Amino acid sequence: MNRLSVIALLFLIVSCAKKEPDLIVKTHIKGLKKGTVYLKKVKDTTFITVDSILISGNPEFELHSDIESPEVFYLFLNKNTNEDDAIAFFADKGITEINTTLKGFPFNAEIKGSKQQKVWEEYQNIISKLNNRNLELIKEEFEAKKAADSLGLNAINKEYNGLLKRKYLFAVNFALNNKDSEVAPYLALTEIYNANINLLDTINNTLTSKVKASKYGKRLQVFIDEIKDTEKSN
Rank of each mutant, 00 (worst) to 15 (best):
K167Y: 08
R166C: 09
I138K: 14
A171Q: 05
I87K: 03
I87Q: 02
V72D: 00
A144T: 05
N177L: 04
K103L: 08
E140Y: 12
E60V: 06
K79A: 12
E140L: 15
K158N: 08
D66Y: 02
F90D: 02
I126T: 14
F89K: 05
L176I: 05
S150M: 15
P106K: 03
K139H: 13
E141F: 11
R133F: 10
S69F: 00
N132C: 09
S128Q: 11
F105Y: 13
D92C: 02
F90N: 03
G104R: 06
P106F: 01
S114N: 06
V172F: 13
V119Q: 04
N177Y: 01
T101P: 09
E159N: 09
E136R: 06
V119E: 03
A144G: 09
N80F: 09
E121P: 04
P70V: 03
E141N: 15
A171W: 05
L102S: 10
N108F: 04
S128I: 13
E136T: 14
K145N: 12
N161I: 12
E110Y: 06
E97K: 06
K139T: 11
A171R: 11
G152W: 08
N132A: 10
V119I: 13
N78A: 05
L102D: 09
K79L: 09
E159A: 10
E143Q: 15
A175Y: 02
A109D: 07
T81P: 12
I87T: 05
E121V: 09
E121H: 10
N82E: 10
L137Y: 07
F76I: 07
F170S: 09
R133Y: 12
L151R: 11
L163W: 03
E136V: 14
K158Y: 08
A86S: 05
K115Y: 09
E71N: 01
L137W: 07
I138V: 14
A88H: 07
V172T: 08
Y123Q: 07
E121R: 13
A109M: 02
N82S: 13
K165Q: 05
A88T: 07
I111V: 04
L63V: 00
A86E: 02
P70W: 05
K158G: 14
E68S: 09
V172H: 12
K158D: 14
P59G: 03
R133C: 14
F170C: 04
L77P: 12
S128G: 10
R133D: 13
R133G: 15
G152N: 04
G104W: 03
F61P: 07
E71A: 03
P59Y: 00
A147E: 15
A88E: 05
F142K: 15
K118A: 09
L153H: 09
T100A: 06
L169T: 10
Q124M: 14
A88W: 06
S150C: 11
E110P: 06
F170N: 04
K167M: 12
F90P: 02
V119M: 06
K145M: 14
T100C: 04
E143I: 10
D66V: 04
S150N: 13
F107Y: 15
L135A: 14
A147L: 12
E122G: 08
E62H: 02
N161C: 10
I67C: 00
N177H: 04
Y160W: 12
T101L: 00
A86L: 04
S69G: 01
N125L: 09
E60S: 11
E83V: 07
K118T: 10
